[in-house]
């Protein structure tokens, strides 16, 4: 099997608090892997440990068959990362941010084409901070795609997008997936997960409570919808009911 991401026994704690506990999974080439869980369940920490912005306490991570620490420069030519928070200079324009991002890579994608594809081609001269939430979110996905990556990490990719923009983003991502792009994403929207993800992993307080396909997640639960199944796995429904 051709694994693009392989995580073995990943463990990370902040002081005494365990953020990710003994997490293992692998993502096949050309598939989309969804990392689900409530806020604070360890999704972002997991991504940060995989891409190396946080050191792991224990375990092993391999991307595209390569150990990240040893061959960082070579690997990041093929990896795109979209962060949850905005990381850009105060007065930078959309076109400038794309241009600088493109200059980081040997063979970058045509960012103007990407801007057009995501419907913000006319915003090239606008300041990034003046974009609407949805436009900015689309820009950050574009930044992750500029390397022409073989694998992308998308953290809460459609948060802040309206229904139409979300559909458009899904459509583009599905197209990229068909071309062989591998994706690891986190999301709070189960409709999105059903549309995009081949396999999912549900985290609860840093521990895996489910791992498998979307269909299996539903079948293994007493429910018929993914959202209900997800809440059942994470026990969020019970807590909600107690609040009434």
């Amino acid at each position: 099997m051709d694994y693009v991401i392989k995580v073995e026994n990943l463990k990370k704690s902040y002081g005494k608090q365990i953020a990710v506990d003994n997490l293992s999974f692998s993502v096949e080439k050309g598939t989309v892997f969804g990392l689900l869980g409530a806020n604070g369940a360890g999704k972002s920490t997991t991504i940060e440990c995989i891409i190396g912005t946080k050191p792991l306490d224990n375990g092993r991570v391999c991307i595209l068959g390569v150990n990240l620490v040893k061959r960082r420069k070579e690997l990041f030519e093929k990896v795109g990362v979209q962060f949850q928070e905005a990381n850009y200079q105060e007065n930078i324009r959309v076109g400038e941010l794309c241009q600088v991002t493109a200059s980081l890579y040997k063979k970058p994608a045509d960012f103007n084409a990407l801007l057009n594809k995501f419907g913000i081609g006319h915003k090239s001269n606008a300041l990034v901070k003046e974009l609407s939430g949805g436009q900015r979110q689309r820009l950050f996905i574009i930044l992750a795609l500029i390397p022409n990556p073989e694998v992308v990490f998308l953290d809460e990719l459609t948060t802040g997008l309206d229904a139409r923009a979300r559909r458009e983003v899904w459509h583009i991502l599905k197209e990229l997936k068909d071309k062989g792009l591998t994706m690891l994403l986190t999301s709070h929207f189960m409709d999105e997960v059903e549309v995009l993800c081949d396999t999912i992993c549900i985290l609860k307080k840093g521990k895996v409570v489910f791992r498998g396909t979307v269909q299996e997640a539903v079948e293994d639960s007493p429910y018929e919808k993914l959202e209900d199944a997800y809440l059942w796995y994470t026990d969020e429904e019970e807590k909600d009911n107690e609040n009434f």
């Binding site: 190396g52 912005t53 990041f76 030519e77 962060f83 990381n87 991002t101 980081l104």
Partner: peptide, 17 residues
């Protein structure tokens, strides 16, 4: 300090540069 707090330095950490 501004580029650190805006995580621009961190973003560069996940690029070849």
């Amino acid at each position: 300090s501004d580029y650190r707090s805006k995580q621009i330095l961190k973003r560069l950490k996940v690029t070849p540069v």
